[in-house]
């Protein structure tokens, strides 16, 4: 019984290696790259907008609580914009690192 299982595992591994060598390199690669680029495009814009919106919301909240007119909204909108740019910068940097690794 155990011998059967061992030989089955061995054959399964061999078959997996054979099929992996073909399909991953030949077929899946361009498809995956397209998908990654599209998801990247979807991410970059919203990362930048997200920082700004978060900043404005926090600033508005602080103004509302402490009864300022718009002081903190202005400050946090600027900081939020910086945070958004920082997010996009990090996203691009991680992409560069991935590219260099591969």
């Amino acid at each position: 019984m155990t011998e059967d299982k061992a030989s089955f595992d061995q054959r399964l591994r061999a078959a997996r290696e054979r099929s992996a060598g073909k399909s991953v390199e030949q077929e899946a690669q361009p498809d995956r790259q397209d998908k990654n680029l599209l998801s990247l495009a979807a991410r970059a814009g919203s990362e930048m907008l997200g920082g700004l919106v978060a900043g404005v919301l926090i600033g508005w909240g602080v103004d509302h609580v402490f009864h300022f007119r718009a002081l903190f909204m202005v400050i946090f909108a600027l900081l939020g914009g910086c945070a958004g740019i920082l997010n996009v910068w990090r996203l691009m940097k991680s992409l560069e690192e991935e590219k260099q690794e591969s």
């Binding site: 991410r43 919203s46 990362e47 907008l49 997200g50 920082g51 919106v53 978060a54 900043g55 919301l57 926090i58 946090f76 900081l79 939020g80 910086c82 945070a83 958004g84 920082l86 997010n87």
Partner: peptide, 15 residues
């Protein structure tokens, strides 16, 4: 800026 960058995660994820 770092704190805002962290807090912007759920905002950008949902937007």
């Amino acid at each position: 800026i770092e704190i805002l960058s962290f807090l912007s995660r759920p905002v950008s994820l949902s937007i």
